[in-house]
Design a protein around this nucleic acid. Sequence first.
DNA 1: TCTGGGGTCCTAGGACCC
DNA 2: TCTGGGGTCCTAGGACCC
Length: 394
Amino acid sequence: MSYFIHADLDAFYASVEQLDHPEFKNKPVIVGGLPGDRRSVVSTASYEAREYGVHSAMPLVQAVKLCPDGIYVRGNMNRYREKSAEVMAVFSDYTPVFQQLSVDEAFLDITGTEKLFGPPETLAREIKKTIFDKTGLTVSTGLASNKYVAKIASGMSKPDGLFVIPPGDEEKFMMSLPTDKIWGAGKKTRELFAKHGLKTCADIHRLSPEILRSLFGKALGIFLYRAVRGQAAEDFENKQENRSMSAERTFPYDLHDEFEIETHLFSIASEVFFRLLQTNLQSRTIIVKIRYGEDFSTEGGRETFQNPLQTLNEYYDQLLALFHKKYQAGRGIRLLGTGVANLEPKSNIMQTELFDSVTEKEKILEKSILAINSKYPKAALKRGRLLEPCPKGL
DNA sequence: TCTGGGGTCCTAGGACCC
DNA sequence: TCTGGGGTCCTAGGACCC
């Protein structure tokens, strides 16, 4: 028999803030921005703040209206990652087979640990206690025979709970749930459920695979068929990683000025390229993303090349060309983004042959400049080329 | 309400080749 | 002439997750 725990930290960012600032304890803490920040969104609300109706993804201005006396902070990802690492280290003390899903949740495969740690439920309680003792954070947990059901169970144990689904009860448990508990069916799919009068998982359970496929499409249809039977565990078993890398920025006021637009494009591209350099990956595809202010519409563009990108100069050249191909000149820009895709492990085979020594020197120089820029971000914003080609004969 | 940022996967259609 | 089918690669947009 297999056993999985899904563990999910409660109101993670807000809890870390309360931990680091004891005066925030038992107060409504909202992470995501300061009152007055335009176009921000709530990232995490403490349970005290949720009493006011504040929740994740809510526009910050609305949160301020609901909870004017809340404690607002922009947040500090580095600190949250640090705390996350402490938690993950505890998990790995109990099982080597654990899968981190995001900064605040993980699956633990505890199959076969009974001799060491006792029955699964006992172990789940011990893990919760250890996390709290060592990090001061509370964690919601679900225990089941597969990951999917464990994930749903942990969601129902919030906050600071443990929800156990005994082996054999997976299908019965799923059937008892309303459709909005299905992990993997979001807003649009729930609208479809409503349209077809599907209120509970049992309603979906009655539909044949063929009907599900015709209503929801191939992949989603099959997924739903399995999900309501408590069998959808393999769906995220082999999630591919490192397929793309991107950065984007929403501006408090729409951009119109070309110089400003290009400056931001360069700055965002530098950030992506620097992150790419810190991996052993390379990319042949660049992506641009533009969101217009007036109607919130978003457009993308992408281009794939024969050979992997070598330098930031090259990346920025191509990006700028692609941007101007897609941009509807004159419209105000709310968001700019760029990224690289088709990531693959770096191969050094062709490089020395295909690329001349100028490119090699350029790469080395760029690398050190980007490293300096990341250390002193104030000095980093610089439009145009990082390095101009050396004029001939000088 | 006026809608972040960083990801993954799916769908549909076009281009191209055999 | 007036048009198959499979495979692969690519693009654009969208759904979803945390």
